[in-house]
Simulated scan of single mutants.
Amino acid sequence: MISTWSEWKRYPRAGRGENLEAPISPGIYEVRIAGSGALYSFGAVDNVAHALALLPVGSRTWFGRRDPKRMPDLEYRTCATSTKADAKAAAEHMIGRRETYMSGAA
């Protein structure tokens, strides 16, 4: 079973004590650049919260720390599912819809 998408939320920035709000279950996540709406990352995973927490954002300095000035302003949303198979099926359906839209818009 597939639930509905959450509202868009600001992706937490390192060093600010902000937290991710995401299900600890299978589902889909989508991350976009806030200013342009360009897709940054998308996936169907076993644990949405874990996948978002591991998302590589920003660039690392020579000492291994993230450079907050180079990190884009990101937003994310999530959609919980019952199983990873449901998440994959929903993701494939979304990708198919985007491809159809883009081919018609070209």
Rank of each mutant, 00 (worst) to 15 (best):
I2R: 15
W5F: 07
W5C: 04
W5Q: 06
S6A: 14
E7T: 06
E7D: 10
E7Y: 02
E7M: 02
W8T: 00
K9I: 10
K9H: 02
Y11H: 08
G15D: 14
R16H: 12
G17V: 03
E18Y: 07
L20A: 05
L20V: 01
E21W: 01
I24P: 14
G27R: 00
I28V: 13
Y29C: 04
V31R: 00
R32S: 13
I33K: 05
V45A: 01
V45P: 00
D46C: 11
D46Y: 06
A49D: 15
A49M: 03
H50S: 10
A53L: 02
L54Q: 14
L54H: 11
V57P: 03
G58V: 14
G58W: 05
G58T: 10
R60D: 15
T61A: 04
T61F: 03
W62H: 05
P68C: 03
K69W: 12
M71V: 09
M71T: 08
P72F: 02
C79V: 08
C79R: 14
A80C: 08
S82V: 06
T83D: 13
K84T: 02
A85Y: 09
A87M: 01
K88F: 08
A90D: 14
M94N: 03
E99R: 14
T100M: 06
Y101E: 05
A105V: 07
A106G: 10
A106T: 15
